[in-house]
Design a binder for these strands. Structure first.
Lengths: 224, 224
DNA sequence: ACATATTTTTAGACTTATCTAAAAATATGT
DNA sequence: ACATATTTTTAGATAAGTCTAAAAATATGT
């Protein structure tokens, strides 16, 4: 049995990890298949293989969950993905909607020293360009302490910390509105019939839909 | 037929390219097998596939050579390999004997913008950490105008520009002697019986074997 | 509770890249 | 030039990852 994991195996572990975050219990075969754009039968095969390697717990028809070992590997791949995203945006002039596909390739490069040195070079960033936390060397992830913009009341002040939906189209839409990480937003009022918000961003007033406010992580400013 | 090349296919093209530089005519199946540490039968299979894709010219039993197209791809992979090596040494504190394996992985990452931006970030380097020239965006490679240290006469002054053998062991040996790219060397004399050289390096005098002098590219200083 | 729908697994096939062993072609030595 | 050695190709097998189609298990609705 090969100890070195293939890119495919790493991608399955990553998918199971992210699905585990929202699913309370075991992750279903179909959910993995959809996420990885493959067929359920392929997932069954791979899941058996990962179970043989003690990276997931699996009982037929009951879904899968990561073992400690499998989780560790998934998190380390995510760490690499997010570090490379920071590099691409900070040093290579990429925008936040362009980095995902490239980071998907870079995350599989194997070298512990490379990850360590990249982290140092980037000055130990804590979040990637989408506001997602970067796991530390031991695989610990900072808890999302932020809150959804949609959960705040009219009158609140907040700062944008991240996005829930990192799709290209959403990110480009935010660019168009001038919303980026660190932007300060004041909620002027909330429409009752569609939950859209009228907000103040810098010196501009604009209206953003519920769809948007549901996908923006913000930190509420304390009113002191 | 898949236009996107696999990493394996790229590695075959690269191997054929570098073998072509020393072999005057077509490259033999066995030479490729040895270089890639695989079997001749595997090479035959792959070469047929590359011929179908019009990346190599191949006639049974007569060896292979790259088409213009195949050469272009090989050179672009080499360009990426060498740019990444510069990044690793210049910004991530790697030494010249550590970068090859990692660059072997990074060279297959697909993104034209990535290569372009990396080149800009590195300030358009012309040579990698071993002194090998970096092909430009159009795939043109600067000719090796340098000469082998072993070809110079006693009394000559020269500057080290590159190494022919980039093996870890050779590079570490050079580190031990204090020889690096840019080092100035004066040849004091050459032993007749074994072609070893007594040289002056900085304020030290040392003797280096023919094996070493045959593997160091240098630029001869003009005596004016 | 039982028929139906959905999900998951199995069985068998395909592709890519590899291997071994044998056959075919080419090269070499005297 | 001809026997022998070497190189290269062919044929058939294997492993990883995928697929389709069918079977098995689980979930759902009335």
């Amino acid at each position: 049995m090969n100890l070195e994991l293939s890119q495919t195996e790493e991608n399955y572990l990553k998918a199971i990890f992210t699905l585990s975050l929202t699913a309370s219990k075991a992750v279903s075969t179909n959910a993995i298949a959809e996420k990885l754009e493959t067929k359920a039968s392929s997932v069954t095969d791979m899941v058996k293989k990962l179970a043989d390697k003690k990276l997931v717990d699996y009982k037929k028809y009951q879904g899968v969950s990561l073992t400690e070992n499998g989780k560790g590997i998934a998190v380390r791949v995510i760490r690499k993905h997010r570090l490379w995203e920071v590099f691409l945006v900070k040093h290579l002039d990429f925008s936040w909607d362009e980095v995902h596909e490239i980071a998907e390739q870079l995350e599989h490069v194997k070298s512990i020293k490379l990850t360590k040195e990249l982290d140092r070079f980037l000055e130990y960033p804590t979040h990637d360009p989408h506001g997602d936390p970067i796991p530390d060397e031991n695989g610990n992830i900072a808890h999302h302490t932020d809150v959804m913009l949609s959960s705040l009341q009219a009158g609140s002040n907040c700062v944008v910390l991240g996005v829930k939906d990192s799709s290209k189209s959403f990110l480009k839409y935010l660019d168009g509105l001038g919303i980026k990480l660190g932007s300060s937003i004041k909620i002027i009022n909330i429409e009752v019939f569609d939950n859209s918000m009228k907000i103040e961003l810098g010196d501009r007033i604009m209206s953003i839909s519920h769809q948007i406010t549901k996908n923006l992580f913000v930190k509420k400013e304390l009113e002191c």
